[in-house]
């Protein structure tokens, strides 16, 4: 019973950390979306130089563990005289990493569209920029939602590692209480459930987005 009481008492503190976790994940996902889309477009339609640069970026951020990146960027922030705020560093590292993964989700979606879509847009006199904005991306982004939901759930779990910098998210707060009360089992079980709950809600919302943006009569299995 003691452990339950400990968990109960610590719960507001730990649940408060989920706000930090959610904020980190939302900012990182948003960053990944904002930078990942142009990267994907560059990789598919850009000049060979642009394609190489995007490839290099993706190679680096997929290759280096997030834990290493956290310390690397921490050092970088210190070196550049930037505010060494753990939350900020965590968002930047997760955001840049997610950019790499998301760019590949979008690239795959763009490349899965039939060639004729771009041809038809060009044949109407659209510039490539207009064709990509009005024809290619609206379709590619729809196709990306399932992959994006996967990226969300992975990013949420990866965000736990940001506790090493002292970011006050779920994991850091749980660890803090556990170190004082020695109720590891109960506390981490609660933390685990919390992550599951956030994943569930997030995936549910993305599922709704997918249904809402579904094109009538269109089957996504093929094509």
């Amino acid at each position: 019973m003691d452990s339950l009481i400990t968990v109960w008492n610590a719960l507001p503190f730990i649940v408060g950390g989920s706000l930090v976790t959610i904020a980190t994940v939302c900012i990182a996902l948003g960053m990944g979306l904002v930078f990942g889309v142009p990267l994907a477009v560059g990789q598919v339609y850009g000049s060979p130089v642009v394609q190489r640069l995007v490839g290099l970026y993706v190679w680096f951020f997929r290759g280096v563990p997030i834990l290493v990146l956290l310390f690397l960027f921490f050092g970088l922030f210190v070196g550049l005289g930037l505010p060494v705020e753990p939350f900020l560093v965590s968002c930047v590292v997760l955001g840049l990493t997610s950019t790499a993964y998301q760019s590949q989700i979008f690239r795959g979606a763009i490349q899965s569209l039939p060639q004729g879509q771009l041809k038809a847009a060009r044949a109407l006199g659209m510039s490539d920029g207009a064709a990509i904005r009005s024809i290619i991306l609206p379709q590619a982004l729809r196709l990306s939602i399932p992959g994006w939901a996967n990226e969300f759930s992975i990013l949420l779990k990866d965000s736990a590692i940001c506790y090493v910098l002292g970011t006050q998210e779920i994991m850091a707060r749980t660890n803090f209480v556990a170190a004082r009360t020695h109720e590891h089992l109960a506390l981490f079980a609660a933390a685990g459930l919390l992550y599951c709950l956030i994943t569930m809600v997030g995936l549910y919302l993305l599922r709704r987005l997918e249904n809402k943006t579904h094109i009538p009569g269109y089957s996504t299995g093929m094509n």
């Binding site: 004729g116 879509q117 038809a120 847009a121 044949a123 094109i215 269109y218």
Partner: peptide, 13 residues
């Protein structure tokens, strides 16, 4: 110069 394709190429979305 308009163009009509064999497989229509309508914008699916």
């Amino acid at each position: 110069v308009g163009m009509i394709f064999q497989d229509f190429n309508l914008f699916d979305h």
